[in-house]
């Protein structure tokens, strides 16, 4: 018995499965949804004129790779109910949609259940509840990937002026999310580039706190200074309200002088961060692992991808916010740790 059970078939779980496969170790992916791909699978390519390295295709490639591998078994619409046995010989009770329960034996468990995008309804001041033309980055992304363009929800017309508000539900103590979500300023930059490429008549304003792009090719300042249709404002808007012409109005502290400005936009995009999955606490109980102060599954300091229980490893955003590439690395590392736990191979 050297099989690894992977809970979750998003990029981190897929990366673990593929890494294990390359080293001849069989695995079984337990995925809650019908299809593999996770949150990444819902996103769309952000390249319009050229590739902007959003990494979304990585997920598609990995799904294809996993599907065609004889060493990777997949259980769709499957949910982990309980874990018994001990490290080295776990027994997982899994409920498979429409097929009743299944007992899976595995030496090691890799948990890659992911996080969740921040629910924009929670931040009442930003108007996601009340204003039709306030959307989340995910809403925008889904529309872009399905239809190849973005229309203002209330008028169904192409927008002429769009605002992005970064760090929504990130670096915000009100929601116990004081951490940086790592991915949002990167994907927002790419989404904004996409909108500009689709419609050069659409001006974009980005309200940001700090840019945390590390790739020198992703120079947001150079992009903004070379494009008159783009404006960067270092400010965290306080509110989004309904304006007189029924467009959303953003209230923010001006960069120039310390005064409050109000500006109307056709649409406001809330760039939502990542938070722990709603099911994380229950999952932690099932797996008998600990969570951290924010509710993510906890890796002991200095031991990436380990959990607080031997034989159970963590990969991807279930253990904290991460971008796609980091999830891929995490998967490989969790696979490596799993193999080492089983005594190494080959």
């Amino acid at each position: 018995m050297n099989r690894v059970a992977i809970i979750g078939g998003g990029v981190a779980g897929l990366s673990a499965a593929i890494s294990l496969e390359r080293r001849g170790v069989p695995s079984i992916i337990v995925e809650r949804e019908e299809a593999l791909g996770g949150l990444c699978g819902e996103l769309g390519c952000k390249g319009v004129e050229r590739c902007v390295r959003c990494d979304v295709c990585l997920a598609r490639d990995m799904v294809a790779q996993a599907r065609s591998s004889p060493l990777i078994e997949r259980l769709g619409r499957a949910e982990l109910r309980s874990v018994s046995g001990q490290p080295g010989d776990f027994r997982l009770a899994i409920r498979v949609g429409g097929q009743g329960h299944r007992l899976v034996r595995a030496a090691v468990i890799v948990c890659a259940t992911g996080g969740e995008p921040f629910d924009a309804h929670l931040d009442k001041r930003l108007g996601y509840d009340e204003l039709a033309d306030v959307v989340t980055s995910l809403d925008l992304e889904r529309q872009l990937s399905a239809e190849g363009r973005f229309l203002v929800p209330s008028t169904s017309a192409p927008p002429k002026k769009v605002a992005f508000i970064l760090c929504v539900g990130s670096r915000d103590e009100r929601f116990n999310t004081s951490y940086c979500s790592k991915a949002c300023c990167k994907y927002s930059f790419k989404l904004a580039q996409g909108l500009r490429a689709i419609d050069p008549g659409c001006a974009i304003t980005i309200f940001f706190m700090d840019w945390r792009l590390y790739d020198p090719r992703e120079n947001v300042r150079a992009w903004a200074s070379g494009d008159s249709g783009v404006r960067l404002v270092r400010s965290r808007p306080a509110e989004v309200l309904l304006g007189e012409d029924s467009r959303p109005e953003v209230r923010f502290a001006s960069e120039k002088d310390a005064i409050v400005e109000v500006e109307a936009f056709d649409a406001v995009v809330l760039s939502v961060g990542l938070r722990p999955a709603r099911s994380a606490a229950e999952l932690a109980r099932t797996l008998q692992v600990e969570t951290d102060a924010h509710g993510f599954l906890r890796s002991p300091k200095g031991e990436p991808c380990a959990s607080t229980r031997p034989g159970v490893f963590l990969a991807g955003t279930c253990r904290g916010p991460k971008e796609i590439v980091e999830c891929v690395k995490d998967g490989a590392e969790a696979a490596s740790k799993a193999i080492a736990f089983m005594g190494g191979v080959g």
Binding site: C305, E326, K329
Partner: peptide
């Protein structure tokens, strides 16, 4: 190496994932 801003934990992850690449290549023998 992420210059200027690498947590020890990030380094451990980088080291682990690079080692995994080498192991993937060699472990099949």
């Amino acid at each position: 190496f992420r210059v200027g801003n690498m947590l020890y934990e990030d380094m451990a992850l980088e080291a682990g994932s690079v080692a995994a690449r080498a192991l993937e290549m060699l472990s099949m023998g």
